[in-house]
Design a protein around this nucleic acid. Structure first.
Lengths: 205, 205, 205, 205
DNA sequence: AATGAATGAGTCTTCATTCAT
DNA sequence: AATGAATGAAGACTCATTCAT
């Protein structure tokens, strides 16, 4: 029987599907994608084994659904408008703060996504899309500021944007993977300062 | 029969072991760790299936052996002395160049290590060790320069070192994973400039 | 998926498990423990190979389950109360009769247990427990009769009880292993007579 | 290449074969037949793996050779003439003493033979042969004594002989398998007394 | 004769997915 | 919709035996 993703679900069906989805997040975050068995999810959800396939096609499928919200939020962060009329540094700090806070909020699933992206083309592409969006915004900013003459004109904008993206995203990843004991505010300030200075933007104080 | 890791191997044995090790590198780089089956390795090496177990215990075991050299080189890069008497910026550029070149040379296996580190505690620890060594050297440099008054005194040294480590290592990873078309020299120069400026070190145009 | 030993089984599940258990008894008795492969059991049971692992962990596990009933019965025989108010000889004969009949009823599995006990500590211990219980009852009887002055007072009770246990249990084993053509009633009477006389108990012609 | 069992061995070859044979006894006694790998034997013997097949065809083959001496000794014990002119009880005690002492001397390999006899027709037959010889001698004695009117005439000679054989042989087996702390002299005397009395033979004191 | 490497048949076990109720 | 049992393809691993030197 084909899964009922696209069918109209009854109230009861919707509830079961939600249970599974929530259970999947919990189990993925706890065990990683690879060590998660379908039965781990159904056990966590309190449903029968076979019920899984009433709603999802496979582990990839439920992961796709489970990551969707997280991905959406990351996407929003990457695409969100920054405060108009703020100074360049203020904009950098605002962007960094949003990123760091968003990362911490969804750290569990983001880390799983990093794992899955190492072997699944589909999720590698998803990973790339978010990164590209983030980088693109940064790159636009760099070009604008270079044209405005407020930052180092020698930096190739895309490479620089890529480097800054790596600095922030991978810092967060390593911070959480290796459980470094850093204070969030310190992190935000430090990353922001370094970001600005890396571009040759003078930073207040 | 227990694997012969520690036994004396004859010339023939050594050759077979080398074949397997080389085959493993090839197959890992081609298929990733997860999609590699033991038979893929033996087929690539042109040996019988059972021969594998004359030399290695498991896929993890041969991966450990295959990564050992790579890891050793990464470790050396992270630990290597930088040119004495050079200016701070020159030291940064030298370190970055070594890192980038080392990364590119072993890109295939390093990328597999990133994959394995997402689910294997052992290789996660290996990954961490190298990173820590790299960061520690950077951190020492930062403190020294801060004391010497040549860079921004406001940056917390460890966080800053971590951020720079992420910037460079993850830039290389993404560059190669996503196959970005960057020129190596441009990358080295850009990363070095940004590194220096991020710390508040003036860079000779 | 973990075996369902402890889960509630549906009627269907119970039936499949019973089929496997029964098939195991058949195959063990036919081929011995060592020559029995999991597939022999599933083939005999008419299930798919993988179904085995829905109910049992391993060959040892299903053997444990298959032997449990037999072992329980042997235990009961060894522990059962003998007729009150009967003469010593009558008690000996009753005990021997029960033992011999019990042995013959479960001969197939008992013989397999002897095999398994030669290499498995777990089943060696099981074997020992039953023997010890049997011997202990015999030993108590001997002491009582020695105190009552009706049997040879010179025999060390434990050694004697051990010897009688060996006489009866191993007689049955060899009888069935080597397929000797003995009449059961003759065996019971002969063993009982010898048992009694060995202890110095006069036997009614 | 066919094994050289039947070829004339050089001095060196004989030595290697002896080493293997001795090593096999050691390893079999230590690990049992089933848990012994060919490499365990060659390792113990200090020879190369392949050397094994220069002298023996298989694990069964070397076991056959290793058990041969033991079996020969058991056979001799079972067949040995008992002291002429001794009283029936003295003959029983002499036979028991020889048996118990022989058993203890070769206990290690005898126990392995019990294991192997549970699954190998060949060694089951060997086991039977020795037992039959032992029983036959006992049976002849019983018949003679019955004709002479010195023991219970009601016992069927073969069954009785079988029972006594079981009593003694299995007592020794269990004694050693379960490591009971019995004194050898006590065992010999007790078994002998019980043997004699079981047959209805009056025992001095 | 001795060596030790090479071989591959034989099993076990897992677990995503399907099926019948 | 829900259930839980059934399925079998896939892979890992062992080790007796053979082979080449």
């Amino acid at each position: 029987m084909a899964p009922v993703h696209d069918k109209q679900l009854t109230e009861r069906g919707r509830r079961t599907r939600d249970n599974l989805l929530h259970a999947a997040s919990v189990v993925f975050a706890r065990q990683g994608f690879l060590d998660t068995k379908i039965t781990d999810i159904t056990t966590e959800a309190g449903t029968a084994n076979g019920s899984f396939y009433n709603y999802f096609d496979s582990k990839e499928d439920i992961f796709r659904a489970a990551i969707a919200q997280v991905n959406g939020r990351m996407f929003e962060v990457a695409a969100s408008r920054l405060p108009e009329g703020a100074s360049p540094y203020e904009r950098i700090e605002a962007a960094t703060r949003r990123y760091v806070e968003g990362y911490k909020a969804d750290a569990g699933m983001i880390m799983i996504l990093e794992q899955v992206a190492t072997f699944s083309p589909e999720f590698k592409a998803m990973r790339r899309e978010t990164r590209t969006m983030f980088r693109a915004r940064t790159e636009r900013g760099i070009r604008r500021w270079q044209e405005a003459g407020v930052i180092d004109p020698n930096l190739p904008a895309q490479v620089a944007a890529d480097a800054l993206t790596s600095m922030v995203s991978n810092f967060c990843y390593m911070w959480l993977v290796f459980d470094e004991d850093y204070d969030t505010e310190t992190v935000v300030i430090t990353l922001s300062r370094m970001w600005a200075q890396a571009l040759g933007l003078p930073v207040p104080d």
